[in-house]
Amino acid sequence: MAVSSLSMSLASSTLPKKLNVPNNQSSSTRVTAFLPQNSRDITHDEGNCKRRPILLGVGALALSLFPASPLFAEEIPQNYTAFVDAEDGYSYYYPSDWRDFDFRGHDSAFKDRYLQLQNVRLSFIPTVKKDVHDLGPMEEVVSHLVKHVYSAPTQLPTVFDMQERTIDGKNYYTFEYVLTSPNFSRAAFATIAVGNGRYYTLIVGANERRWRRVRNQLKVVADSFRLLDI
């Protein structure tokens, strides 16, 4: 149902809180809006209430719904789409030709249409901590995650780079790592942050053999992750 056929007040009360905003020349123009036709447009995975994102191009309507989101204050990079989850308090960019898929235990995930191991996924868990600094020094936190959380016993973990960023008063750790197995290796970026009573983890990666070709593209995804106040 096109939003132009509805009054602004009706649209504002009906629009979903998970949005996909495609790249365009201006982040507030040339976007088409769609609304769910019925409750079946929102699905729930057992044990992990996951709502499928519904494509929404928003123009001025999105600006009125999410005035605090940095995604609507800047132009979305060429060939990327912005995913905004106002209900769960986060946003990030992903390549526009990727499609969403269900990744167990994750709140959202997108993957390359042809290379399934080339993907981004985001998860979060409750925490009483207020900031990523509360987890500990970046070097210790990253080393522990890569060696003891992300890798399996048969994998050799290697960390290549760590970065700390502060954006709008919120702190993020982003790091690059490789997990090497006897027959397979995977490289990835991870960005972690704490806010809204949650510990968020975004991981975007690919087969190591393709890493040189896609590294810069995937770094944009890792660096785009933002916390939204909820």
Rank of each mutant, 00 (worst) to 15 (best):
S181Q: 14
A193Y: 03
T174N: 09
T166C: 09
G197W: 11
F175G: 01
V141Q: 04
A193R: 04
A193H: 06
G195P: 06
E176D: 10
V141A: 06
V141G: 01
G169A: 11
T166G: 09
K147M: 07
L145E: 07
V178T: 15
Q163Y: 10
H144R: 14
A152L: 08
G169I: 03
F184L: 13
N196H: 09
F160Q: 13
R198G: 03
K147E: 15
Q163M: 14
Y150P: 00
S143C: 01
I192Y: 10
V149D: 10
Y177G: 01
K147C: 05
P182T: 05
F175A: 05
S181K: 13
A152S: 08
S151G: 04
E140Y: 07
V178Y: 04
A152D: 03
I167Y: 15
N196G: 04
L145D: 03
A190C: 09
M162F: 07
M162H: 06
V142W: 06
S143F: 04
D161V: 07
G169D: 10
F184G: 08
P153M: 05
F189V: 01
L179P: 00
R165N: 12
P157F: 00
V159D: 08
P157K: 04
Q155P: 02
S151Y: 00
N171E: 13
V178G: 01
M162S: 08
T166E: 11
E140K: 13
Y177R: 05
H144C: 02
